[in-house]
């Protein structure tokens, strides 16, 4: 017994180092696995508060640009409103289902911390549980999607950005209904990859990619980006498409949170099938 205690005292630095290293390694593993790390994230009270006060100052430097974005969006929405009677826009078009149909509730939020330089990027926004924001809500801007909320605290929430190698989002071609999964290879903050597109799909350079509506997170038809180039996979059955994002992910300020009011019902319906 004496010897064990002596050993511990003699090597206490090494032991402490090993212990702390294992803890840090554990936290890293936890953050890599899909099930979310509960307490090491930027959506807590302390970091959220600091980021918000810093953002209160920094926001003034982008006011002109943000104004232009808002005016542009207003123009689009007005065009939509005044053209409603037009026969070209029927209630089945994609944009209508987001705004007029009662299935989705929209909230506005402000990005207070934006990362895009690592391979696993997250954003922090100033809306949290007290504003009714929960996990698995989608986040978009007027130009395209941003990511999915993966962690919330009382006043803040963290978004799993589409620029995160863990992110998987259902997407499809706008011209046909061939679906694929949107991923990121960690290289450029302007280009994401759409994989598993069937080789029978009419893939053309410059075509638009939109969300697929097969998940209960995003409505169908939110724009994502345009096709930059595409390659046939080694197997020869599917395309991998490089998609240039409409959103400038490096310059985000005002975003919208999408809540699917039917998500719970859809989940309840789908779960028994998964278990079999």
């Amino acid at each position: 017994m004496q010897q064990i205690i002596n050993f511990v005292i003699r090597n206490k630095t090494t032991l402490l180092f090993l212990l702390l290293f294992v803890i840090a390694f554990g936290l890293t593993i936890q953050s890599h696995s899909y099930h979310r790390s509960k307490f090491i994230n930027s959506a807590n009270f302390l970091t959220g508060g600091i980021y918000e006060s810093a953002n209160n100052i920094m926001a003034y430097f982008g006011l002109r640009e943000q104004n232009n974005i808002l005016v542009e969006e207003n123009r689009q929405l007005r065009a939509l409103v005044y053209n409603r009677g037009d026969s070209t826009i029927t209630s089945t078009t994609s944009t209508d289902s987001i705004f007029s149909n009662g299935r989705y509730r929209m909230r506005s939020a402000k990005v207070i911390n934006n990362n895009y330089s690592a391979t696993k990027n997250y954003l922090t926004i100033n809306r949290g549980e007290k504003h009714g924001v929960k996990e698995d809500f989608g986040v978009m801007t007027s130009k395209g999607i941003v990511g999915i909320i993966d962690n919330t605290s009382n006043g803040y929430a963290r978004i799993l950005s589409i620029l995160n190698t863990k992110s998987r989002i259902n997407a499809q071609l706008k011209t046909s209904n061939h679906i694929g999964s949107l991923e990121w290879n960690g290289e450029s903050s302007e280009i994401v990859q759409l994989s598993d597109i069937s080789k029978f799909a009419p893939v053309k350079q410059g075509d638009t990619i939109v969300t697929g509506g097969q998940s209960s997170i995003f409505p169908k038809g939110i724009p994502i980006g345009s096709i930059e180039d595409f390659t046939l996979d080694v197997g020869g059955d599917t395309y991998t498409v490089n998609v240039r994002l409409f959103n400038d992910m490096t310059n985000l300020s005002h975003v919208y949170i999408i809540e699917n009011l039917d998500a719970e019902e859809i989940k309840l319906l789908e779960n028994p099938i998964d278990e079999q």
Partner: peptide, 10 residues
């Protein structure tokens, strides 16, 4: 915690 990177910096 600030940069959402799990425990890599630690």
């Amino acid at each position: 915690i600030f940069s959402d990177s799990g425990g890599v910096n630690a």
